[in-house]
Design a protein around this nucleic acid. Sequence first.
DNA 1: CAGATTGTTATCCATATGGCTAAGTAATCA
DNA 2: TGATTACTTAGCCATATGGATAACAATCTG
Lengths: 111, 111
Amino acid sequence: MDNNLNDIFSALADPTRRAVIERLTTGPAPVSELHLGHDMAMPSFLKHLGKLESAGLIHTAKAGRVRTVHLEAAPIARAVDWLTHHRTLWEGRLDRLSALAEHLEKEPKDG
Amino acid sequence: MDNNLNDIFSALADPTRRAVIERLTTGPAPVSELHLGHDMAMPSFLKHLGKLESAGLIHTAKAGRVRTVHLEAAPIARAVDWLTHHRTLWEGRLDRLSALAEHLEKEPKDG
DNA sequence: CAGATTGTTATCCATATGGCTAAGTAATCA
DNA sequence: TGATTACTTAGCCATATGGATAACAATCTG
C-alpha cells in the first residue's frame, strides 16, 4: 500500500518522466510521439514509460503497431495527499512558532 | 531551479526519509533520537539525513556534540505546486472526458 | 511480397544508491 | 584524566538506475 508511494515519488523524480506527464495532460499520445524531443534511444525511453506505468501514473493500450499512452489520475492524488497532510502539519508548527515569535516581539524586549 | 524537483521527489521516494519527515512534523530532534526505531547503522541513517538536507527538506545545527534536525517548509511547497498544477490539468481533462461520455450517453445510441 | 514503421527484447555499461564495518573526532561526565 | 556519548569519515559491497547498441517482431503501405 504505502509502498506505492515509493514508486510514485521515484517515478516523479526524473525530468524525462515529468515531461511525459506534462505532455499527457494535454491528452493521450502514442509512444513514438512522446519519444520526440527526448534525446535518448527508444529502449531507454521505454524504460521511463515502464516506470511510470508500474507506478500506476499511466496506462497504455496497443492498437495495431501503435501503443497509446494515457494518464492515470488516482495515484497522483496519493502523493498529493501525503504531501499536503505533512505540509499542513509542519506549516501548523511554523505558524505556532511565528505566533510565538510575534508574542515575544510584543513583550517589552528590554525596554 | 527545476532540477531541485528531482532532489525533492527522490528524497521523498524512501520510507525511512518519509518517516523522518513525519517525525519532524512534531518538532525538531537530535540525530540520535531520529535514528531510534530505524533498523540500520548510524552512518547509513546519516546518508538519509544528508539527502533530505541537500534536497532542502531539512536543515541542521550542531550544538556541542548534538546535531539538531529541523524541517524546512518551503521546498515541499514546490513539490505540491507541481503535483497540484498537473493534477488540475489532467483531472480537468478527465472531467471533460466524462462530460463527453455523459453527452454521448444522452445521444440516441444508434438512432 | 518488399520495405518502411513502430515497438520490443536482450545485453551491456557506468554511475548512483542504500546498506555495512572500522576507526576517528569532539564534547561531556565521573 | 579516562570513559562515554554523539556523531563523522573512510572505505567496501550488492543492487538499482539510466543510458547505449543490436537484433527481432509485428503492422501497415505501395
